[in-house]
Design a protein around this nucleic acid. Structure first.
Lengths: 356, 356
DNA sequence: CGGCAAATTGGTAGCGCTGCCAAAAAAACC
DNA sequence: GGTTTTTTTGGCAGCGCTACCAATTTGCCG
């Protein structure tokens, strides 16, 4: 396996002139058209233009046409910055998420953004890298935009973050974790229940010597909750966890593969392994395929998340499917509707699959 | 394979009172602290507070302390809406992307957001679903926020979109496609070169009866460019494409599997298949594993994107690795630096792998 | 056609902040 | 000590829009 680098021939950092035939020189800040100019052009008052554009209040059909014609003619684009400042309440929704590599969060954003766009809200986001301190700083930065709502992952936050959010007066939505007290709205499911359910399933299937392969749990508290509940359930059924392998860094296929390899190297008689995530589990699955370890007869594999790819492998992955897109959708709907504080449990689904 | 639904026991849509012990009633719009109040509290003028907070202009150390103390005491959070309106140029960067399911875009966002956050810019996004009309509408909505830059995928846009962007006076960055004229800045690589490179590689390896499995190309114009250049190159070497299977809908593992199954059902003697994407290719790979089709001796598989998972499969996937995160990073850096118009070619890397 | 209610419209005061300018204070100099 | 510089400060006019209110027009009825 080798690698070869290609580039289409154009240079990096070439001078502007070479970059295409129709480069416009956009260094002069173009004179932006304002609402006042539209009003003047249409021969009506400013407030009339504002009313027509927002379709709010009353105006005659004739006026409407005149205004729209002027808007068209001048290429007017309303300035929402000014609009938001003048009115009360922005139509911004701020997402402060731990990561974009973990498919969970793009999925949540996807669900949310569809709903938000329909309702003419704007999504703003920033990425914390699972760092609570960074979460606090980024949340503060987001609040400066006076969003209608702030959406965060989980319900563990620094004191400062909580205080700030409480004081902000904007809606707060905590996503994907119901195991804790919610500040305002919470949408998701119980990670503890997911951990318990996974353990119960493996036990029901008759596995007794169970191991675990996971990624850095200090940062991903939700994975930590699943793991600890998983272990408790095993313990309660006299089949305590036999071994574990925790890898530094993020959840990934490569880490799953490596983790299982290491775990098996030092533990001989495991009959099942629980992974912190589906990508880790897939790594484990590939390891078994490559090493000729029969699944599930010789070793069972169980994941978490219910990625699509796990359904297309030769043996479908046994896992728990989480309602990621729905979490985003519901969260957005509640915000748009300005719903009262509440916790919404969307549950999860255990996929039996064929690997456990 | 079965499924079972779980929920942790809490109800959906339960009344607010039950949703936690420390629910705050946030229906009274809290009186927000303003800069004027901070000034009053600190016993200085408004502009002094503004200067201290932005660390801009000059002020004495003593004043600085007084202001910061007042800020702390009142819990002041600056209002960027007002700040942006008053000053020139926002620190917003707008992303108008086709999808969040296709990992490409979260990767680009990831690269960009890291750079933007360092420079105190805010990322705003919306999702077009590969619909040019929606792109136009969403781009218009974004321009209303007067962003410092708009980032779009590819260089094919409606006339209206182009006109609007040109007139907006804000920076425009076109991502992931260099095969066309750029409006302003373009960052990415040549999809045509990628298609050609893939074909050349397969030909060099000695494959002559080559097929294609792809997703809906009308929507994903970049995949379409790769495909047409791929075909041209094959044709130029007297080994024209033998068969193709195009599946409606998005690129996915399941579609890849299904597509290869169908292709093989009606074409007997293929020796290699090019897939529109790595996830499609992985689907094909899994199909072969499940059906006992030897790879690459009986059938070679070649993908596109260089997903991490393709490196952890029993046989690493032969594919082209694209600089997705770097595209986002560079794009953001150019915007932050207010660089002149240019096209930046980041190239791509051909991963030989073991499936072709 | 007068008279009153309803539908339209325009004027204007902010929204909270920044940028400019001039005033005041401090520092430097002869 | 009296200037001249330099640094630090406050005042205030907008940024572009919306919300409120008052003025105007229109519609409708007897």
């Amino acid at each position: 396996m080798g690698a070869e680098r290609w580039s289409s021939g154009r240079q990096v950092g070439q001078p502007p002139q070479q970059s295409g035939s129709n480069v416009t020189m956009e260094f002069k800040p173009q004179p932006t058209v304002t609402l006042a100019e539209v009003a003047e052009a249409a021969g009506v008052g400013e407030s009339t233009v504002s009313r027509v554009l927002r379709n709010h209040g009353s105006f005659s059909g004739k006026t409407r046409e005149r205004v729209m014609a002027a808007v068209e003619r001048l290429g007017y684009v309303p300035n929402r910055i000014a609009g938001t400042l003048a009115s009360t309440g922005s139509r911004l929704v701020a997402f402060v998420i731990p990561s974009l590599s973990n498919i969970v969060f793009p999925d949540v954003l996807r669900g949310a953004s569809a709903v938000l766009e329909e309702n003419r809200y704007q999504a703003v986001f920033s990425v914390t890298d699972y760092d609570p301190g960074k979460e606090e700083a980024l949340a503060a930065a987001m609040l400066a935009w006076r969003p209608a709502a702030v959406m965060l992952a989980g319900c563990e936050h620094t004191e400062g973050t909580v205080k700030m959010l409480r004081a902000s007066g904007c809606r707060v939505v905590e996503l994907l974790d119901l195991d804790g007290d919610a500040l305002d709205i919470a949408v998701g499911f119980s990670n503890r229940a997911a951990g318990r359910g996974s353990a119960a399933f493996l036990l029901k299937r008759g596995y007794r010597r169970i191991g675990y392969v996971g990624h850095d749990l200090n940062r991903d508290t939700r994975a930590g909750k699943r793991f600890s509940s998983f272990c408790e359930t095993l313990g309660a059924h006299d089949a305590p966890l036999v071994a574990r392998e925790i890898l530094p860094g993020a959840s990934s296929v490569e880490n799953g593969r490596l983790g299982l390899e290491r775990l098996l190297a030092r533990t001989t008689d495991l009959d099942a392994v629980y992974f912190s995530n589906d990508d880790m589990a897939l790594g484990g699955y590939f390891h078994c395929l490559a090493e000729g370890i029969a699944i599930p007869s010789k070793l069972a594999i169980f994941g978490y998340n219910g990625l699509d790819i796990g359904r297309a492998t030769p043996q479908p992955l046994s896992t728990i499917r989480t309602p990621r897109v729905a979490t985003g959708q519901i969260a957005a709907q509640l915000v748009v509707a300005n719903a009262p504080p509440q916790a919404v449990d969307l549950g999860f689904e255990l996929i039996e699959g064929a690997t456990a």
